[in-house]
Design a protein around this nucleic acid. Sequence first.
DNA 1: AATCGAGGGGAAAACTATTTCCGGAAAAGG
DNA 2: CCTTTTCCGGAAATAGTTTTCCCCTCGATT
Lengths: 350, 350
Amino acid sequence: MPRDPLSSLVDVARLAKVSLSTASRALNPEATHPVKRATRQRVTEAAQRLEYRPNLMARGLRRRRLPTIAVVVHDVTDAYFAEIVRGAEDEAYKQGYLTFVCSSRRDPAAELRYVEMLRLSRVSGVIFAAGGLIEPNYQRAMRRQVEAIRDYGGAIVALAPRVERWATEVADNSGGARLMTEHLIGLGHRRIAFITGPANVATSAECESGYQLAMKAAELKPLVEPGDFSTAGGGRAVASLMKRDHTFTALFVSSDTMAIGTLSELHRRGVRVPEDLSVGGFGDIQSWEFAHPALTTIRIDLAGIGAAGVRRALEQVAGRDAAPRVRVHPVSLVTRESTQQLERPMAALA
Amino acid sequence: MPRDPLSSLVDVARLAKVSLSTASRALNPEATHPVKRATRQRVTEAAQRLEYRPNLMARGLRRRRLPTIAVVVHDVTDAYFAEIVRGAEDEAYKQGYLTFVCSSRRDPAAELRYVEMLRLSRVSGVIFAAGGLIEPNYQRAMRRQVEAIRDYGGAIVALAPRVERWATEVADNSGGARLMTEHLIGLGHRRIAFITGPANVATSAECESGYQLAMKAAELKPLVEPGDFSTAGGGRAVASLMKRDHTFTALFVSSDTMAIGTLSELHRRGVRVPEDLSVGGFGDIQSWEFAHPALTTIRIDLAGIGAAGVRRALEQVAGRDAAPRVRVHPVSLVTRESTQQLERPMAALA
DNA sequence: AATCGAGGGGAAAACTATTTCCGGAAAAGG
DNA sequence: CCTTTTCCGGAAATAGTTTTCCCCTCGATT
């Protein structure tokens, strides 16, 4: 096996004519122990000359963690999660950390196994973006892993309300849903249907509560159809919805990923959007702004949330996490082509 | 700082009443040194009882690498790369490896820095999916990093033709482009325009050569417009193309990401697809099969290529990489809505 | 009986950086 | 001048595993 030709700290120490410990202290400015300016200078120069880079595994062995963070998502190929990962990765990169991506494919067993692998790899922070699905059967085991990560000084951050007392960075889902519902109401719609996400996902519940709130405030009757956050599921949901009701004039789909399937199904059935039916999405998948009809949706700064998650984790690692436990990120309505004024307003009926 | 409460190999050795070395050998079956069956049994049981898990950093320090692989892409939010990452991650997960994702955002300096970070982290394999962009200024530095990774036993795999003598897993881009071009010719089109990718990307060059080949074989005059593989760029390219030519009846866009922008721009201009213009894409972004018109495109098994890359890397690490240097993955045509028979065939003119 | 070889186990080195503990020198104070 | 700090550098312990080197035993061979 060929030897690693790169130099180690002993080489630096030798060249600078100091001991190993001094070399280490000189190169790690925030060490407890001070080092004379001149000495530090000598060591730094030696390190430079030898192109010294610390062996992260040796360092990790002592420091008990590696400069890496992990993002746990359901699926990187889902644009929603890809944006979170990207935001997290950018921030991590800036701070000199590498990013693991873990796609749990909505399987709690896989998620658990991933978290154990992350623990063994002594990752500095784990960011749970995986929508907040918590299987009771796995909760205990998961909690043990998380505790173990905390024990070695690793940080845990959630990007969806997940567990009490976790540091959390979350979009204002409820507010966003209210915004969209009010937008549709403002356009004159009275029969506004809503397609939810999976029942056990927190994001989904929040969205629905926003919808319910806005509907109640306007004294309108809610019409809810269960969905599953998948594109195909979005098609199925609208099909099922139309089977049991044909009076709604607007439809609010609680994720863009689903909305894509919904739009496709509507097209197949010859329902024109927005002429026959206004459709609103949630989450603003960037690339779909080029679709037709372009989706009116709620924009969430997913990359920003991912980045905030990383910052939060690293603050936690550094031991200064004075920020509020749950931080809510604002969202905004982006009006495009898929919603329009109701043509024959029923307001008169009310 | 709280101590890691988990047990280490000494605990196992103590419980099994064997030495540290024997414990290590018993738990690593492929060790050089044999261990009696009964002894191994005892050690295994002790490990089980204590829920022993090896400290990966200590192991990495000796073994000189960690069970991690990295995928270097341009951008995870681009569906093309997301699928590759997903495929790689799935395979890595199966083999007990974690996956780093590195989005170079087409910046060779960032790519270089990432590779250095990966080297310091003693990653087992690096998979370059970043289209093959090689800046001459960075080539030397990059090569040094790669050599260093090889030195500690790490593997390098390219998913685009990149450097001579690297293990390479690549889609049959040229064949795919020929397939699409022939499809359009078969539909009766004679004026077939082509939008390329960036000049310095190998994938792009291969696509173009496939197009050129097919056009030449059919004795047709090529019409090429430069593009950049971005969605916005796809719109700009078709605009520029239409400024200088208005006779083409079919358009082959060398990436789906671009094709999305192209379609959007055509829609804006009132050009109907496929009635007025047939449009073919390349790469088959899954979620866009739900768009309208659904894009006729060349399907590439990107996840499969990502997975193959990981398998290849791990074989290399294990020291058995007898496979051919460059492995080409077949692609296929998927016909959807955006291409159709030319309505008034010009075949007679030929 | 002496020799050889293989199987099996232990002690210790190696991997490389951080950190604790200690001692000497210089500076400060009385 | 002597004592007490303060500053700075070195030696050694430490993190937890793998691997090398060495030794012992036991059966087979000459």
